[in-house]
Amino acid sequence: MAESHQEAHKQHSPLLSVQGVTLQYRTTDQLLTATYRVSLDVQRSDRFVVLGPSGCGKSTLLKAIGGFHAPTEGRILLNGTAVHAPGPERAFVFQEFDQLLPWQTVRANIEFALIAGAHLARGEAADRAAHYIAKVGLHAFADNYPHTLSGGMKQRVAIARAMAMEPAILLMDEPFAALDALTREHMQQELLQLWQDTRFTVIFVTHSIPEAIRIGNRILLLSAHPGQVRAELNSPGTDLRDAQGKLLSTRIQELLFDRALKSAAGDNGGNDNV
């Protein structure tokens, strides 16, 4: 009985599997290690959040999953096949507002992706683009050029474009980081609503603890310099207390910063003695 249970568990293989991935990149005068032997598994319909301080290599990790950056060690498997190059089955949403082609309207920005990436016919692409534009509530702006939209609207278009691809997995690199606080909260809510509708799989990178708790059902904590997996936690969607009465956000904070706090305290003690 227990054995068959285990077998069933094995068949439930992860959608995306990152195995011992070390990422390095060259700057003009040095070689930097962004992440060191990071492993993680993402299941279907996960809202998998990668959380860490700046410099923990979370964006580099996401770009590696996107295929923009080859790992120096380890491998990345999507549905069991290794990731080598960028591809439309891993649709990317960037932090920058300039990810929309300025020379195309909202509609054309989505259609271009569907025709180039998903190889849809023109009519089919138009229908699907219209559907997803309506989904993010921008049907009134379908023929606008991106520079006439606000930051939040631009990010909505980018999300609509990525979702319209109906990718195996959505990769979101701090998509709301450059938005004002009110818009940001609104967009988080919308994203969760969209997830309720279609149950897509998403990896969401952020450096905000409240955002991670709100968006994610699973949160990966990366330490900085170089990025290593500190913990992988479950999130109920709100900042609840655990059995010890500790808030999830406090736990995350302690896990992310304990070493830094201790070493800072140690330094202070040393200085006092001198």
């Binding site: 996107g66 439309p88 960037f94 300039d98 990810q99 992706a113 180039a116 990436g117």
Partner: peptide, 22 residues
């Protein structure tokens, strides 16, 4: 912009398509 170049690669443009469209 590097972001636009990544967008082009993400949606799988061919080499010629990348030059012409991005």
């Amino acid at each position: 912009s590097p972001t636009l170049k990544m967008v082009g690669r993400n949606y799988g443009l061919s080499r010629a398509g990348f030059v012409l469209r991005i």
